[in-house]
Lab assay of single mutants.
Amino acid sequence: KWTIEEKELFEQGLAKFGRRWTKISKLIGSRTVLQVKSYARQY
């Protein structure tokens, strides 16, 4: 389950980097690239 903080970081990353999942993953820190991709599908 994603925390509110992780969701906010995901949204910031999406706005800043677009669909560059590796960069978003590094920004969040606690999620892998695969987790970020998977979350993006449901987002």
Rank of each mutant, 00 (worst) to 15 (best):
Lys1Glu: 12
Lys1Trp: 08
Lys1His: 06
Lys1Thr: 12
Lys1Ala: 11
Trp2Thr: 06
Trp2Asp: 10
Trp2Tyr: 04
Trp2Gly: 08
Trp2Pro: 06
Trp2Leu: 04
Trp2Met: 04
Trp2Arg: 03
Thr3Gly: 10
Thr3Asp: 06
Thr3His: 01
Thr3Ala: 03
Thr3Phe: 15
Thr3Pro: 00
Thr3Lys: 03
Thr3Glu: 09
Ile4Cys: 13
Ile4Trp: 05
Ile4Ala: 11
Ile4Arg: 05
Ile4Val: 08
Glu5Trp: 00
Glu5Phe: 00
Glu5Thr: 09
Glu5Gly: 01
Glu5Ser: 12
Glu5Pro: 09
Glu5Lys: 13
Glu5Leu: 01
Glu5Cys: 01
Glu5Asp: 09
Glu6Lys: 15
Glu6Met: 15
Glu6Pro: 14
Glu6Tyr: 06
Glu6His: 04
Glu6Asp: 06
Lys7Arg: 09
Lys7Ala: 08
Lys7Asp: 02
Lys7Leu: 01
Glu8Ser: 13
Glu8Leu: 08
Glu8Pro: 05
Glu8Asp: 12
Glu8Thr: 12
Leu9Ser: 08
Leu9His: 07
Leu9Lys: 14
Leu9Arg: 10
Leu9Cys: 00
Leu9Val: 04
Leu9Phe: 03
Leu9Tyr: 04
Leu9Met: 05
Phe10Tyr: 04
Phe10Trp: 01
Phe10Ser: 06
Phe10Ile: 03
Phe10Gln: 05
Phe10His: 04
Phe10Pro: 10
Glu11Trp: 04
Glu11Gly: 07
Glu11Gln: 08
Glu11Ile: 08
Glu11Cys: 07
Glu11Thr: 12
Glu11Ser: 10
Gln12Tyr: 04
Gln12His: 08
Gln12Gly: 05
Gln12Trp: 03
Gln12Ser: 09
Gln12Thr: 12
Gln12Asp: 02
Gln12Met: 08
Gly13Pro: 07
Gly13Glu: 00
Gly13Met: 07
Gly13Ile: 06
Gly13Cys: 04
Gly13Lys: 15
Gly13Phe: 14
Gly13Leu: 09
Leu14Thr: 02
Leu14Phe: 08
Leu14Ala: 09
Leu14Gln: 07
Ala15Asn: 05
Ala15Arg: 06
Ala15Leu: 10
Ala15Thr: 11
Ala15Ile: 13
Lys16Phe: 05
Lys16Glu: 08
Lys16Asp: 05
Lys16His: 03
Lys16Ala: 09
Phe17His: 07
Phe17Cys: 03
Phe17Pro: 03
Gly18Thr: 01
Gly18Asn: 08
Gly18Arg: 10
Gly18Ser: 02
Gly18Cys: 04
Gly18Glu: 03
Gly18Asp: 01
Gly18Phe: 14
Arg19Pro: 15
Arg19Asn: 11
Arg19Leu: 12
Arg19Ala: 14
Arg19Met: 13
Arg19Gln: 14
Arg19Lys: 11
Arg19Asp: 13
Arg19Thr: 14
Arg19Ile: 04
Arg19Gly: 09
Arg20Phe: 12
Arg20Cys: 15
Arg20Tyr: 12
Arg20Glu: 15
Arg20Met: 14
Arg20Pro: 04
Trp21Arg: 00
Trp21Cys: 06
Trp21Ile: 12
Trp21Thr: 00
Trp21Gln: 08
Trp21His: 01
Trp21Glu: 04
Trp21Met: 10
Thr22Ser: 14
Thr22Lys: 14
Thr22Cys: 08
Thr22Val: 09
Thr22Ala: 12
Thr22Pro: 11
Thr22Arg: 10
Thr22Met: 10
Lys23Gln: 13
Lys23Met: 06
Lys23Asn: 08
Lys23Pro: 07
Lys23Asp: 14
Lys23Ile: 11
Ile24Phe: 04
Ile24Lys: 02
Ile24Cys: 03
Ile24Asn: 01
Ile24Tyr: 00
Ile24Met: 03
Ile24Ser: 03
Ile24Asp: 12
Ile24Ala: 02
Ile24His: 01
Ser25Thr: 08
Ser25Gln: 08
Ser25Cys: 13
Ser25Gly: 10
Ser25Trp: 10
Lys26Phe: 01
Lys26Glu: 14
Lys26Cys: 07
Leu27Cys: 06
Leu27Trp: 11
Leu27Ser: 06
Leu27Gln: 05
Leu27Lys: 02
Leu27Phe: 11
Leu27Asn: 01
Leu27Thr: 05
Leu27Ile: 06
Leu27Gly: 03
Ile28Cys: 00
Ile28Asp: 00
Ile28Arg: 00
Ile28Lys: 00
Gly29Pro: 11
Gly29Met: 06
Gly29Cys: 08
Gly29Lys: 11
Gly29Tyr: 15
Gly29Ile: 12
Ser30Gln: 03
Ser30Asn: 03
Ser30Tyr: 02
Ser30Cys: 05
Ser30Gly: 04
Ser30Arg: 04
Arg31Asp: 03
Arg31Thr: 01
Arg31Asn: 01
Arg31Pro: 00
Arg31Ile: 00
Thr32His: 01
Thr32Glu: 00
Thr32Trp: 11
Thr32Ala: 04
Val33Asp: 04
Val33Cys: 09
Val33Arg: 13
Val33Met: 13
Val33Phe: 15
Val33Leu: 11
Leu34Tyr: 14
Leu34Ser: 15
Leu34Phe: 11
Leu34Val: 14
Gln35Ala: 13
Gln35Lys: 13
Gln35Arg: 10
Gln35His: 04
Gln35Leu: 07
Gln35Gly: 05
Gln35Tyr: 01
Gln35Asn: 05
Val36Thr: 05
Val36Gly: 02
Val36His: 00
Val36Ser: 01
Lys37Val: 13
Lys37Asp: 03
Lys37Gln: 12
Lys37Trp: 09
Lys37Met: 13
Lys37Leu: 12
Lys37Ile: 14
Ser38Pro: 01
Ser38Tyr: 08
Ser38Asp: 09
Ser38Lys: 13
Ser38Gln: 14
Ser38Gly: 09
Ser38Arg: 10
Tyr39Arg: 07
Tyr39Trp: 15
Tyr39Gln: 04
Tyr39Ile: 08
Tyr39Gly: 01
Tyr39Ala: 05
Tyr39Met: 08
Ala40Ile: 11
Ala40Tyr: 09
Ala40Asp: 02
Ala40Glu: 02
Arg41Gly: 10
Arg41Pro: 02
Arg41Lys: 14
Arg41Phe: 08
Arg41Ile: 08
Arg41Trp: 07
Arg41Asp: 15
Gln42Ser: 14
Gln42Arg: 07
Gln42Ile: 10
Gln42Pro: 05
Tyr43Thr: 10
Tyr43Arg: 07
Tyr43Asn: 11
Tyr43Ala: 13
